[in-house]
Design a protein around this nucleic acid. Structure first.
Length: 897
RNA sequence: GGGCGCGUAGCACAGUUGGUUAGAGCACCUCCCUUACAAGGAGGGGGUCGUAGGUUCGAGUCCUACCGCGCCCACCA
């Protein structure tokens, strides 16, 4: 056994230990039919990602689960990788170009893509490197990227298959358009935020009448594309106007007044301007009434040639101008403040424009059926459970998924159009979905065929993550042999479905729900059994940590200052299941201090085990152990039991705190202190060794690096605890009687320390103690373990008969564990019997309050009748004990001169 | 408009199915550099568990309403 360095220095051990595990392939998962598989796929961070606290939390949780399962004998696999993050990554490279005053159009598609790949090559592994600094036990050799060759093949396969099943289609729809990114977005990518805006009331002159019809709108600029005004069919105010015509101001266009049930007569004026090309509701009305669709915006948000005089001006500039012009024309009736929810681009936060456009969609309803069922019948479970409802609600109201994006970085749609055959009115004519590149039209053989310039939504590749990462669909590539394909197939079979998905609730819709759907569609099975949703990391003011807010704490900085293990343990211990995590830098001191404690306690044990022949198995049977030995073994097994329960329920903070409590406040504070009395006994040494060895095992998933370092010193090996087994609970050592006895010793010890402290007795000075108890058994426990008290409370003599003498003439007493405890002190001027009496009076008063409450309870016939007998008995006993304690205190009080 | 979470000590939090005198951490006060550890040890002060009702023998825990904070979803212009 080697000694540990005097000072714990995480910098000297952490990286070394991580590399050691990796070198020994402990992170590698492979098929082992003798074991149960336990696999996790990492939520792939964006290639543009920089490690933040959310990642730190997310991956620490996964790492704990993986390591613990591996120790429990499962064959574990943690699949790592990154996501190409279409828009986000494209934006990064575009911003880089912008610094040189270039746009992507300036460089062209091919060159631009090369620039993105170059960027990916250079910076794309940053996040992976950073994950390693968290000590993640990922199987790095398997690291996947959503745009690597095989993965792209999966995306292609899925597109083709869904298209064959008519679940992918092309159509003209109102979609969410980001004028800055200039692409369509899915509904999930355009979150609505409440904004304070205005409701403008605008008069539309009725044709051939000296009347006006007033409409209310939040987006006046869209009036340029109005093709009707709608009122409710039963609205008496407007009944006679239905079918008539109004003149659209500014455009001088004649538009119809239509009747539609959609209109709410109570809102605004009860008359709605209808802009079918720029609003989803108006779109629906436009369809119902066969209205014209006039698009008045360029893709970049400027007004187009359909916008009359406003052609060329930005949508918000146009809004201002239109309001001014309407004012001039005296057509603006009034303006009201109005708050409504406005969609924003989830990548650049620009206000979304509902935009009429031709896009590709996935029909979701059929895919949702098995995904709904699996969660309803419990084949997939959410933790915490409340998210189930959120999931089900979304699934039940699922909308079709817009998957085409007008950007360049991503999987290009495997769709080809023939210029000759294309037909504006027929979405399928001249359109070909193909696995291979087409250079001739399959219909007319024309070579005027071109591939769709669009790429697929990033999530269209990530939703395949749980199986595509294993090599599905196993097509032959230039680097694959039939054997390697065969192996991949078997690996998927072995590791799929994965055990648990660990992620944040923000992406339930984006990702979790879609993976469940794709799992059923392509694997015919769930992708994972459990979904563990952890909270969001916030600053201590409750704000979400983000780079843009400038309130983030950099995990790498924390690692540099406190160490990886400290970061992990701190983070986990303050993360209660599903709750958001409030972080401040100081919180990491918690983990650091604990690591330090582990180090020092281990150091003590190692020093004292020097040369001793101890093994884990050599613990004597219980009867041969002293109280302290038996107690700590009981504590350990109870701790382990609780730990196992907490882990099974994903209550990792509870698990961390159970470990902390045991190691620090039981093993260190009491057992190690007591062990010093018998440090040369082989039994004590064995127990110490055993406790250290087992503690290291159970702490390893939480703090893998420090535990491995100590483990190697303890065992003289160079292995990792990862490859060792999780301890079993040994019920034989759990002993409530031993626990009770030890509790008495501890209570009395605290009582003596308390008396010493209150009476200003110097820590070095020994005191004589007088202990009285009516119960000879308890007295016996105290007397036979008196050496513990002598050591822990610096007691000289301990004896029921100790009396004051002329040198030490005063006995100061208190009660603990039902015993009367007195210490003999020498009299000095600071001693004031009156103060002692007051102290005792206060104690008595408090006890009396409890007794009164209890007696009232016990006097209640309903309570005695209805409460479980054990509870009643406990109350009775407790009341009795309190009364006895008061008696003792009163005796002590009256003895005071 | 619907849904969810939170409100417990000065601070930020835990409290699993309702059952002894509501818990640790940080901060604070007193004492101690005691031979594993001052990133430590011993002791201590501090809480009408957001408010008001209700269910119950018994409520921080369950129910209802309300107040405050935060989040998510939804096509009311």
């Amino acid at each position: 056994m080697e000694e540990l360095a005097k000072k714990y220095s995480f910098k000297d051990i952490e990286e070394k230990q991580y590399l050691n595990c990796e070198k020994k392939s402990f992170f590698h998962g492979r098929i082992d039919q003798s074991k149960n598989p336990f696999s996790i796929v990492i939520p792939p961070p964006n290639v543009t990602g920089i490690l933040h606290m959310g990642h730190a939390l997310n991956n620490t949780i996964q790492d704990i689960l993986i390591r613990q399962k591996k120790m429990r004998g499962n064959e574990t696999l943690w699949m790592p990788g990154t996501d190409h993050a279409g828009i986000a990554t494209q934006n990064v490279v575009e911003r880089k170009l912008a610094k040189e005053n270039l746009t992507r159009d300036d460089v062209g598609r091919e060159k631009f893509l090369k620039l993105v790949w170059d960027w990916k090559q250079e910076y794309g592994s940053t996040i992976i490197k950073q994950l390693r600094s968290l000590a993640c036990a990922c199987d790095w050799k398997r690291t996947r990227f959503t745009m690597d060759e095989g993965y792209s093949d999966a995306v292609l396969e899925v597109f083709i298959k869904l298209h064959e099943k008519k679940l992918i289609y092309r159509g003209n729809r109102i979609i969410n358009w980001c004028p800055r990114c200039q692409t369509a977005l899915s509904d999930e990518e355009a979150p609505h935020k409440d904004m304070e805006g205005f409701l403008w009331y605008i008069k539309y002159p009725v044709k051939d009448a000296k009347k006006f019809l007033t409409v209310a709108t939040t987006r006046p600029e869209t009036m340029l594309g109005d093709t009707a005004v709608a009122v409710h069919p039963k609205d008496e105010r407007y009944k006679d106007l239905i079918g008539k015509t109004v003149i659209l101001p500014l455009m001088e266009r004649e538009i119809k007044i239509i009747a539609d049930e959609f209109v709410d007569p109570a809102f605004g004026t009860g008359a709605v301007k209808v802009t079918p090309a720029h609003d989803p509701n108006d779109y629906a009305m436009g369809k119902r009434h066969d209205l014209e669709f006039i698009n008045v915006l360029h893709p970049d948000g400027r007004c187009n040639e359909n916008a009359g005089d406003y052609n060329g001006s930005d949508r918000f500039e146009a809004r201002k101008a239109i309001i001014e012009d309407l004012k001039q024309l005296k057509l603006l009736v009034k303006v009201e403040g109005h708050s409504n929810a406005v969609g924003h681009c989830y990548r650049c936060h620009t206000v979304i424009e509902p935009y009429y456009s031709k896009q590709w969609f996935v029909k979701m309803k059929p895919l949702a059926v098995p995904a709904l069922k699996a969660v309803k019948d419990g084949r997939i479970n959410f933790h915490p459970q409340r998210w189930t409802k959120v999931y089900l609600n979304w699934m039940e109201n699922i909308q079709d998924w817009c998957i085409s994006r007008q950007i360049w970085w991503g999987h290009r749609l495997p769709v080809y159009y023939c210029s000759k055959c294309e037909d504006e009115n027929d979405y399928e004519k001249g359109v070909f979905v193909s696995r291979v590149k087409l250079d001739k039209c399959p219909d007319c053989a024309s070579n005027e065929i071109y591939q769709d310039p669009d790429v697929l939504d990033t999530w269209f590749s990530s939703w395949l993550w749980p199986f595509a990462t294993f090599g599905w669909p196993f097509h032959k590539t230039k680097n694959s042999s039939p054997e390697s394909i065969e192996l991949k197939k078997r690996e998927l079979e072995y590791f799929y479905p994965t055990a648990v998905l660990v992620t944040a609730p923000e992406i339930i819709f984006f990702w979790v729900a879609r993976m469940i759907m794709s799992g059923f569609e392509f694997m015919g099975d769930i992708p994972f059994k459990d979904v563990y949703l952890h909270g969001t990391v916030r600053d201590d003011g409750g704000k979400k940590m983000s780079k843009s807010l400038g309130n983030s704490i950099d995990p790498l900085e924390i690692i540099a200052e406190y160490g990886t293990d400290a970061l992990r343990f701190s983070l986990i211990s303050i993360t209660s299941i599903g709750q958001d995590v409030y972080l401040a830098k100081e919180k990491f001191e918690f983990g650091r201090n604990f690591c330090n404690k582990i180090w020092n306690a281990s150091r003590f044990i190692l020093i004292n085990l020097e040369g001793a022949d101890v093994t884990v198995k050599a613990i004597p049977v219980k009867g041969e152990l002293n109280l302290a030995d038996a107690w700590i073994l009981s504590r350990f097994n109870l701790t382990l039991k609780k730990l196992n329960e907490s882990l099974a329920k994903y209550r990792l903070n509870e698990a961390a705190n159970v470990i902390y409590e045991f190691f620090w406040h039981q093993l260190c504070d009491w057992y190690i202190e007591l062990s010093k009395l018998n440090i040369n006994s082989i039994v004590t040494k064995t127990v110490l060794y055993n406790m250290l060895e087992k503690s290291l095992r159970i702490m390893h998933p939480f703090m893998p690096l420090i535990t491995d370092e100590i483990w190697q010193k303890v065992t003289g090996t160079d292995t990792s605890i990862m490859s060792k087994s999780w301890p079993d609970v040994d019920e034989d050592y759990i002993d409530t009687d031993i626990e009770k006895q030890m509790q008495i010793i501890m209570d009395v010890c605290v009582c003596i320390r308390n008396l010493r402290s209150e009476n200003n007795i110097k820590p070095k000075d020994k005191v004589d103690v007088k202990i009285k108890h009516e119960d000879p058994q308890i007295l016996n426990i105290l007397v036979s373990n008196s050496e513990f008290l002598m050591s822990l409370a610096k007691v000289g003599n301990i004896n029921p008969k100790v009396t004051a003498d002329s040198n030490n003439p005063v006995v100061i007493s208190s009660t603990a564990a039902g015993a009367e405890i007195g210490i003999i002190i020498s009299l000095d001027e600071s001693f004031d019997p009156e103060k002692e009496k007051q102290k005792i009076d206060a104690q008595i008063k408090e006890l009396n309050a409890h007794i009164t409450r209890k007696d009232k309870l016990l006097g209640n016939v309903n309570y005695v009748k209805k409460a479980p007998p054990a509870v009643v008995e406990k109350e009775k006993q407790s009341s009795l004990e309190l009364k006895q304690e008061i008696e003792k205190l009163e005796k002590i009080r009256s003895a005071l001169k």
